[in-house]
């Protein structure tokens, strides 16, 4: 045990193995959860056939996806087309490396952890655009273009609203930010004002980053058939799909860490609080997803630049003033 803890390489390997596998499994069953949840919202039972209450449905889905023929369109850019899904997956998973799961449980305790996560997750636009371009499909191309435009726009409010906990916590290290929120002084609640607004903005911008309704215009199945995933079948599609869920999960983990105090909570601190909070955010995202309609591309760019950016700038200013004078 101590050998592992002392050797950073071994520790990294073990922690990475555990985290990646745990997250993959969570993401798979989050699909089951979403289907059940959406079913309940629509007064229907959701998956029921495979396993008890359909619990084995993700396994069945996986088996189905693996069995499918792997089709690459004739005129597609083969290398990019095949590279895009695993690349998206890697980028989403890489962000998990710096999460403080519990006091002292950080796979890689970077002092610029937040910056690392944000820059890694902003790179996800590249595989999405790769998928859109390489598919040689007009719908996929439109979807990729929309994704690029969306990412460029929503990166700004995302970063600005993430700046608020950085200013308030005084560090880029996620562990320090969580520690600054100890004893219930969560940034979403205290100081009143900038933190809570920044929290809402951060979650909305994360929705946009993760291509979730109401901002899922790159996929927009009623307009673009399936957007960037139009030409993907089988496990490649499965990877894109899973990466989206993982991205949502990472976003809710990050939201819980930055604004809701991470592992902090009444009673003993620990990973259970982080998981509980991020699960609540995760469910909230699904609730929004299965309730709202989709914005038009230009409308929600306008929303971003006219509302999100000024408001998040104001939040940053107020947070800075608070930091200096309070």
């Amino acid at each position: 045990m101590s050998v592992i803890l002392e050797n950073p390489w071994l520790l990294g390997a073990v922690a990475g193995f555990v985290v990646i596998n745990a997250m993959m499994v969570t993401a798979a069953w989050s699909i089951w959860f979403e289907r059940k949840f959406a079913g309940a919202m629509q007064n229907r039972p959701g998956p029921t056939q495979v396993g008890w209450a359909g619990l084995l449905q993700p396994v069945a889905d996986l088996l189905k996806l693996i069995q499918k023929e792997d089709i690459v369109p004739t005129n597609a850019d083969r290398a990019l087309f095949n590279l895009a899904p695993p690349l998206g997956m890697i980028l989403v998973l890489a962000g998990l490396a710096v999460f403080p799961w519990a006091p002292g449980w950080v796979p890689a305790d970077l002092d610029i952890g937040l910056l690392f996560i944000l820059s890694i997750s902003s790179l996800i636009t590249i595989p999405v655009w790769m998928a859109g371009w390489a598919s040689n499909n007009k719908y996929a191309l439109l979807g990729g273009m929309r994704a690029a435009a969306q990412a460029v726009s929503f990166e700004v409010p995302l970063l600005l609203s993430a700046l608020v906990p950085i200013i308030l916590g005084g560090s880029l290290r996620l562990g320090d930010i969580v520690a600054a929120q100890a004893d219930g002084r969560w940034f979403a609640l205290w100081p009143p004002g900038p933190g809570s607004v920044a929290f809402v903005l951060f979650m909305l911008a994360s929705l946009a980053e993760a291509n979730r309704i109401p901002f899922d215009i790159p996929e927009a199945e009623s307009e673009l058939v399936a957007g960037i995933t139009t030409e993907y079948v089988g496990m490649k599609f499965g990877l894109i799909y899973l990466a989206e869920y993982l991205h949502t999960a990472v976003s809710s983990l990050l939201g819980a860490t930055l604004f809701l105090g991470g592992w902090d909570g009444p009673g003993p601190d620990g990973i259970h609080w982080l998981l509980l909070k991020s699960f609540a955010l995760f469910a909230g995202i699904f609730w929004v997803r299965w309730t709202l309609l989709r914005y038009r591309a230009d409308q929600f760019m306008a929303l971003c630049w006219r509302v999100f950016v000024p408001v998040s700038l104001a939040c940053v200013a107020v947070a800075a003033v608070w930091r200096v004078y309070a």
Binding site: M41, P45, W287, T291
Partner: peptide, 20 residues
């Protein structure tokens, strides 16, 4: 949007409408 969220939230607690 909360008015829409209220409706879907309300439906979470309604009886299931479909049958096997």
């Amino acid at each position: 949007a909360f008015s829409a969220l209220r409706i879907t939230g309300l439906n979470l607690f309604r009886a299931k409408n479909t049958e096997p």
